[in-house]
Write a protein that binds this DNA or RNA. Structure first.
Length: 490
RNA sequence: GGUACCAUGGCCGAGUGGUUAGGCAGCGGUCUGCAAAACCGUGUACUGCAGUUCGAAUCUGCAUGGUACCUCCA
């Protein structure tokens, strides 16, 4: 198997990926909290780890990819009554909580499908793993790393830090944090401000609740990932992913929970995708500056100059390395749209290219292919891979212009490159053709173009230009070449 | 205040201690009846200051600016 390198947040170094089990990879990624519509940020995380699993599979790994649905347990605020977000929204809209969960889960799936994000192997719901979470709390209590207070259970960070390092992932030092803590009101139950809830007793009005040995309540928001990842991937597994904003405290707490329960860490490689920003600021719920995917695809947000297709959004995201912040702008989106179109048209051209007897590029093509894959193998450098792919695009267009010649072998290699790298690994899909009768459309447009050809032959340019302009209005772009006219859907 | 990270040409965005990233936009050209597309050519780029080095945008230090996390967040 070819070497694959990952930047591991835990070591802050790029490391060669060595799976726990030969040719197998277990991947866990923190999925969405389904209390609202997915936005660009959700797309980035999903696409980043979609490319990861796609590429691991391309390299020959058998991948089990687990991405959870968070439908309980995210506390609004430790200091408030302990409502979780799902319950709040539910009451707000007078709906059954699980109806809200189902609604947004369905929408999440629809948008992910549009973005050509493959479904995970397993998509566990936190609400379906209450028993596992309760069992894990019991173990942590047995091991002395948690305490019960008023029907709630809290993780004892200070105790844990005596024998282990709390903060190893995020680089935080507990003592420093303690000397810089903010005063929070209503911390009556916690022994220490850094302790976090494993189980939270439900207030009387709290409608999402489950029985437990400690109280009727709900699990703490860090626990679900620890419980579900190890359930499906084993008590040690390969890769844990998520957004950078989850690094602390969420992932830090996951490590502490795993160690407290199992005696050792669960995840071996931690990968974090960076944020999408809007005018340099993180797109997020709290700032209200996010653009939902629905708005992106419809062009219905005031910041959007136009609608962008799901593939344009996907390509825009892949044009940056996943660990860099990516700033949204219409200019950048439009540039991405053009590049993607250019690449996809080159693929069409490639499929029609007639092979030549000799090649002007026979040495370059294998080199380009190697560079493309080397880029992806280097911590998923999609940006570089796309840059190299464009060298192939130029060669294809140049061959189409008869300025280069490519043999059948060259053409075959290029086809494999686009199929293996662009389509399979990067997950770009050629835009769907209109579902109508394509043969009919084909016939009609060709007939119209034939009339135009005659007009041109008679130097009746007024008529030929009128035909071209009218076709453009219908979304059909005409291209005149030496060999005649061709057309594509815009 | 603490922790982590970032700073590349009009814009987006890779990158290695010395040799072209790539693209968008712009400009010039080829092609075209004209366009579009394509192809060819075209850019004093690396926040500032010091240091290491034969040589740094790439390493080190300092400064400045910015972002994220420290409360739910991809």
């Amino acid at each position: 198997m070819k070497p694959f390198y990952i930047y591991n947040t835990l070591s802050r170094k790029k490391e060669e990926f060595k799976p726990l089990v030969e040719a197998h990879a277990g991947v866990y990624v923190c999925g969405p909290t389904v209390y609202g519509d997915p936005h660009l940020g959700h797309a980035r995380s999903a696409i980043t780890f979609d490319v990861l699993t796609r590429y691991l599979r391309h390299l020959g790994y058998k991948v089990r990819y687990v991405r959870n649905i968070t439908d309980v347990g995210h506390l609004e605020n430790d200091a408030d009554s302990g409502d979780d977000k799902i319950a709040k929204k539910a009451r707000l809209e007078q709906l059954e909580p699980m109806e809200v969960v189902q609604y947004y889960t369905n929408r999440y799936h629809d948008f992910m499908h549009a973005l050509n994000v493959l479904p995970p192997s397993i998509e566990p719901h936190a609400s379906g793993h209450i028993i596992e979470q309760i069992e894990m709390i019991k173990t942590i209590l047995d091991h002395g790393f948690a305490y019960i207070e008023n029907g709630s259970v809290y993780f004892d960070v200070a105790k844990y830090n005596q024998s282990h390092v709390y903060g190893k992932l995020s680089g935080r030092v507990l003592d420093d944090m303690q000397s810089n803590t903010r005063e929070l009101d209503g911390q009556t139950d916690k022994h220490n401000p850094f302790d976090f809830a494993l189980w939270k007793k439900a207030s009387p009005e709290h409608i999402m609740r489950w029985p437990s040995p400690w109280s009727d309540g709900f699990p703490g928001w860090h626990l679900e990932c620890s419980a579900m990842s190890t359930k499906y991937l084993g008590d040690t597994f390969d890769i844990h992913g998520g957004g950078m904003d989850l690094l602390f405290p969420h992932h830090e707490c996951e490590i502490a929970q795993s160690v407290a329960a199992q005696g050792h860490e669960a995840a071996r490689y931690w990968m974090h995708n960076n944020m999408i920003t809007n005018n340099g600021q993180k797109m997020g719920k709290s700032l209200g500056n996010f653009i939902t995917l629905e708005e992106m695809f419809a062009g219905s947000h005031k910041l959007l100059a136009q609608a962008y297709t799901p593939m344009t959004v996907r390509f825009f995201i892949l044009q940056a390395h996943y660990s860099s912040t990516l700033d949204f702008s219409n200019e950048a989106m439009q540039a991405a749209e053009k590049v993607l179109k250019r690449i996809l048209e080159a693929v069409t051209t490639l499929n029609k290219l007639a092979p030549a007897a000799t090649s002007t590029r026979e040495n370059e093509i294998p080199a380009i292919i190697e560079k493309c894959y080397a880029a992806l193998s280097d911590d998923l450098n999609t940006s570089l891979a796309i840059a190299h792919l464009q060298e192939a695009v130029r060669i294809i267009n140049s061959a189409n212009d008869k300025k280069d010649s490519l043999t059948a072998t060259d053409i075959d290699r290029l086809k494999q490159l686009f199929s293996g790298l662009l389509f399979d690994s990067l997950g770009i899909a050629a835009e769907q053709q209109q579902s109508g009768n394509t043969a009919l459309l084909d016939g009609v447009v060709n007939m119209v173009l034939d009339v135009r050809r005659q007009a041109k032959a008679n130097k009746d340019f007024a008529t030929s230009d009128k035909i071209r302009d009218e076709l453009v209005k219908l979304g059909i772009v005409v291209k005149d070449t030496k060999d005649g006219s061709s057309w594509t859907l815009a």
